[in-house]
Deep mutational scan, measured.
Amino acid sequence: VTLFVALYDYEARTEDDLSFHKGSKFQILNSSEGDWWEARSLTTGETGYIPSNYVAPV
């Protein structure tokens, strides 16, 4: 499992996005959609889309 960590805070703009804070960790579920990845937050357990340029591999 590849884990990613948030580099910045992000406020969701749609109900499909995940809001998160810098330092939040994610499991990436689908990275084939270009700049928006489907991810599960390891902090909240919620699933949604995150901007790929806001995260980096742990």
Rank of each mutant, 00 (worst) to 15 (best):
W37N: 01
K22Q: 08
L42W: 08
P51E: 02
Y54H: 08
T2N: 11
Y10A: 01
S19A: 06
Y49H: 07
L29K: 05
R40G: 01
E33L: 14
D17T: 15
A39Q: 00
E11L: 10
F20A: 01
S52I: 06
S52W: 09
D17W: 11
S32R: 10
Y49N: 07
P51G: 03
R40W: 09
L7E: 03
H21E: 12
G23W: 05
R13A: 11
D17K: 15
Y49L: 14
S52N: 06
S24R: 03
V1E: 13
G45H: 06
N30M: 07
E15F: 10
E15V: 12
W37Y: 09
R40K: 11
S31G: 09
K25C: 14
E11A: 10
S52Q: 07
V58W: 14
A39H: 00
W36L: 07
D17H: 15
H21D: 09
S31H: 10
T44S: 09
L42Q: 06
D9C: 09
W36Y: 12
S31Y: 13
V58Y: 13
Y49T: 07
W36G: 02
L29M: 08
L7M: 09
T2C: 15
V5M: 08
G48I: 04
T14I: 06
A6V: 01
A12K: 08
S31D: 13
D35F: 14
Y54R: 06
E33C: 14
S24M: 15
L42Y: 07
G23H: 05
Y10F: 09
V1D: 12
G23A: 03
D17V: 15
V1N: 13
A39W: 02
A56V: 14
S52L: 04
A39C: 04
I50T: 00
S32Q: 12
N30P: 04
L29R: 04
E15S: 13
A56K: 10
T14M: 12
L3Y: 13
D35L: 12
V55Q: 00
I50W: 02
F20W: 01
S41N: 15
T14Y: 15
T43R: 09
F26V: 03
N30W: 07
T2W: 12
G34L: 11
A56I: 13
L18M: 13
D17A: 15
A56Q: 10
Y54V: 05
R40Q: 08
I50R: 00
P51A: 04
P51N: 08
A39G: 05
A56P: 01
S41E: 10
I28E: 00
V1R: 11
W36D: 03
W37G: 00
W37S: 02
L3V: 14
V55N: 00
A39Y: 02
F4Q: 03
Y49S: 06
W37K: 02
L3K: 05
V55E: 01
D17P: 02
F26S: 00
R13M: 12
F20V: 01
T47E: 08
A39I: 04
G23K: 02
S19M: 03
V55A: 04
W37M: 06
T44C: 05
L29H: 05
Q27W: 14
G45R: 04
T2D: 11
L7V: 07
K22R: 11
E33Y: 12
L18R: 01
E38R: 12
F4S: 02
D17R: 15
A39P: 01
D16G: 15
L3W: 11
S19Q: 04
K25R: 12
R40H: 08
A6L: 02
S24G: 06
P57Q: 08
S19R: 04
T43M: 10
Q27S: 07
N30Y: 07
E46S: 07
K22S: 07
T2P: 12
T47S: 08
S31R: 13
S32P: 10
Q27L: 15
G48K: 01
T47L: 08
L29Y: 06
L3M: 10
G48H: 03
Y8P: 00
Y54N: 03
V55M: 09
R13H: 10
K25V: 15
D17Q: 15
D35K: 09
S31Q: 13
E15A: 13
K22G: 03
L42D: 04
E11F: 10
